[in-house]
């Protein structure tokens, strides 16, 4: 449905995108992640035809964004990162304006208006001037604008930025509700928001894609090894020495634990059973086992590892 191939974009001497490629099938939802200035918004502006790529190709539903931008635009609903609102208008005037500009009229316009007002929870502010709305309602009005023409593709640039936790859940549920029928790309800084909505993510850093895949695969690919926390009631030095002798562990690192506990973070290869040996190690020394858990890397760890400049060589990425 969306195909981005080898796209580059430069602003003066800044290279905003440097050979970016990814694709998205119909009905898929993509979480688009990256630190500030990574190039997320730039990539979205190119998909929505607001900007033209310097090199590479982008197509939406098989239509090239440079060759036929109007056809592409009619398929896309777009929420830019800055509220695209006319604050001198009322909410209903604004939505009517966008609806008409997108070719809706008459009964159809009325039906779509009712739908977006319901879906985005705008009933209470429908006849209010936009400059009197709170940030959350502004964001929802922006979202309503992107949905008014029932587009096949949604491009949402930080749809939850600046919202309170309840509103974030509201927007998340809205996106989940749309998921069945639409192809969606959304960018965000808040990683916990991603996994409830989708498990497909693309991580971009410094204008390059550093990871593309399912969250679980990425977590493993990025960190290479499994992470286990273990704690014994034991003298710290003795426990550490015993762990180092155990074999099969790649890394043993003391970490802070409760009083009297010697606590360690250890790394092992995926698929290798180290929990049982770690348990037996305690028994054989007569140490109480206080903690033993596998702690898979979170998306957050992955994100940090992949986007810390130079921390992870490109081969590690899942591209």
């Amino acid at each position: 449905m969306i195909e981005v191939r080898d796209v580059t974009k430069r602003f003066g001497t800044t290279v905003a995108l440097d050979g970016v490629s990814f694709r998205l099938d119909k009905g898929e939802i993509l979480g688009f992640l990256g630190p500030n200035g990574a190039g997320k918004s730039t990539a979205m502006k190119i998909v929505t035809t607001f900007l033209a790529p310097d090199g590479g190709t982008v197509s939406v539903d098989g239509i090239d964004v440079l060759r036929n931008p109007l056809e592409v635009r009619s398929r896309i609903g777009y929420l830019p990162e800055n509220h695209p609102l006319y604050v001198d208008m009322m909410v209903h005037e604004y939505l009517q304006f966008v609806g008409r500009a997108r070719g809706l009229a008459g009964d159809e316009l009325r039906r779509r208006l009712e739908w977006v007002v319901e879906a985005c929870g705008l009933g209470s502010v429908f006849r209010k001037p936009i400059n009197e709305l709170s940030k959350g309602f502004r964001q929802r009005t922006g979202l309503a604008q992107a949905l008014i023409h029932d587009p096949e593709v949604l491009i949402l640039d930080e749809p939850t930025s600046g919202l309170d936790p309840l509103q974030i859940i509201g927007i998340r549920e809205l996106i989940q509700g749309l998921a069945r029928s639409k192809t969606i790309i959304f960018s965000t800084h808040i990683l916990q928001e991603v996994s409830p909505v989708t498990d497909r993510v693309v991580i971009i850093n410094g204008g390059r894609i550093v990871a593309d895949g399912r969250i679980g695969e990425l977590e493993r690919a990025a960190m290479g090894r499994n992470r286990i926390f273990v704690a014994y009631r034991a003298p710290a030095a003795a426990a550490e020495a015993a762990l180092r002798d155990l074999g099969g562990l790649h890394e043993v690192r003391p970490v802070a634990g409760r009083d009297g506990a010697a606590r360690f973070e250890v790394r092992a290869d995926f698929g290798q059973d180290v929990l049982a040996p770690l348990g037996r190690l305690g028994q054989s020394h007569g140490w109480d086992l206080l903690e033993l858990q596998e702690s898979p890397f979170s998306l957050e760890d992955t994100f940090i590892a992949l986007t810390r400049q130079g921390a992870v060589p490109r081969e590690v990425s899942h591209v």
């Binding site: 502006k45 929505t48 035809t49 607001f50 109007l70 056809e71 635009r73 009619s74 896309i76 777009y78 830019p80 990162e81 800055n82 509220h83 695209p84 609102l85 006319y86 604050v87 966008v98 500009a101 997108r102 070719g103 604008q145």
Partner: peptide
């Protein structure tokens, strides 16, 4: 200055 320029330039019209 506001974000509406992006809205206008991504409407399905020239």
């Amino acid at each position: 200055r506001s974000g509406t320029f992006e809205l206008l330039m991504t409407l399905p019209m020239k």
